[in-house]
């Protein structure tokens, strides 16, 4: 620990990248934020788990959702993670055109996911689901659904906005490889949260 600090010059100490975590301050901050935000979803999902376990019965999701459609949404979002990873890789190799192209593909994936979610919401609302009531007997079912997917959706929307800003900056060649990577970290996090929601809310 001492050795690393001593061998590094003042400037490199200032930007971080030394012990205990060899990352820059910006990336460290992003990781910390992701942990914090992850715990927010953990709180929401724990609350959902609590009310569901306390409920004598819980609606059958297979009758309410088209799980094939949800699986397609999941597939789209995970694919967008792959295109994001490609954009990060291209940024590291210094290929700005590829970066912009794959960022746009990622944004497209995010927007399609949001479109699917909007469709699903409007369908359920059309069937009479509200925050306080729904036709399937357990009011908290739709409450948990709207709050958790709504919160996740707002994160996806934020992600799309961040990616758009990064794409514009990449187009003007004003973004560092690390900037793309940080946006990518956030995007992967949002996707990972969806995997948990998909598993815990729709499948189990």
């Amino acid at each position: 620990m001492n050795q690393a600090a001593k061998s590094a010059g003042i400037e490199s100490v200032w930007r971080g990248g030394i012990s205990p975590f060899a990352v820059s301050w910006r990336k460290l901050m992003m990781w910390l934020f992701i942990i914090t935000d992850g715990l927010l979803f953990a709180g929401l999902l724990a609350g959902y788990g609590f009310v569901r376990l306390a409920s004598p019965r819980w609606p059958n999701r297979a009758e309410i959702f088209h799980l094939d459609f949800i699986a397609l949404m999941t597939f789209i979002l995970i694919t967008s993670s792959a295109t994001m990873a490609t954009a990060v890789g291209a940024a590291r190799q210094g290929r700005p055109k590829t970066v912009v192209r794959f960022l746009l593909l990622t944004i497209l994936g995010g927007l399609s996911f949001l479109g699917c979610q909007a469709y699903e919401w409007s369908k359920l609302i059309g069937e009479g689901a509200r925050l306080s009531t729904n036709p399937w007997g357990v009011p908290l079912f739709s409450a948990a659904f709207f709050i958790i997917t709504g919160f996740h959706g707002s994160h996806v929307l934020t992600g799309v906005l961040i990616l758009s800003i990064v794409a514009v900056r990449a187009l003007r060649q004003r973004v560092s490889p690390e900037g793309v990577e940080l946006a990518g970290l956030y995007w992967h996090f949002v996707d990972l949260v969806w995997v948990f929601i998909f598993t815990l809310f729709y499948l189990i």
């Binding site: 600090a5 001593k6 003042i10 975590f21 820059s24 460290l28």
Partner: peptide, 9 residues
């Protein structure tokens, strides 16, 4: 974690 000066382990 990241902004300590030189020698400040």
């Amino acid at each position: 974690l990241n902004e300590r000066t030189r020698g400040m382990s």
